[in-house]
Simulated scan of single mutants.
Amino acid sequence: MSHHLSGPDLRSPGDDARLDLTDVFAFTAPSRERTVLIMNVNPFAPTRAEHFHPDAVYRINVDTDGDSLADVAFSFVFSPPGDGGQTVSVHRSLGRRAQSHEPGAERLIADAPVSFDSDPEVATAGELTFSAGIRSDPFFADLDGIVHDFRWTGRDSMADQNVFGIVLEMPNAELGSNPLIGVWARVSVHRDGKLVSMDRGAHPSLTAYFNSEDAKDTYNAREPADDWENYRDAWTAVLQHTGGYGVEDAHRVLRQILPDILRYDRSRPAAYPNGRKLTDDVTSARLNMVSGGRITTDHIGPHNDLLDRFPYLGNPHPVGAAAMSG
Rank of each mutant, 00 (worst) to 15 (best):
F78Y: 06
L239M: 09
E102R: 10
P81L: 13
Y264N: 04
R96I: 10
S115C: 06
A110M: 06
M198A: 08
W184P: 06
P318C: 06
H203P: 01
A271C: 14
A70S: 15
V77D: 01
T242D: 08
G7C: 05
V122G: 01
S205D: 14
Y312L: 11
G84E: 15
P318H: 08
L10C: 07
I146W: 09
E223L: 15
A173V: 14
F44E: 12
Q240V: 07
D199L: 02
R255W: 12
A123F: 03
A17W: 05
L195W: 01
Y272Q: 06
G133V: 03
T47D: 13
T296W: 11
P46R: 04
A173W: 10
S157R: 03
T279E: 14
L180Y: 02
F140H: 09
D144T: 09
Y58C: 01
G84D: 15
Q256A: 14
D160V: 10
E106L: 15
V163K: 02
A110S: 12
S2K: 11
V77R: 02
M170R: 10
T35R: 10
D67S: 10
F139V: 12
F74M: 05
V57C: 01
R222E: 15
M158A: 15
P311I: 02
N162V: 06
D9Q: 11
L69G: 07
I295Q: 09
H51V: 03
E106T: 15
V319A: 13
S212C: 07
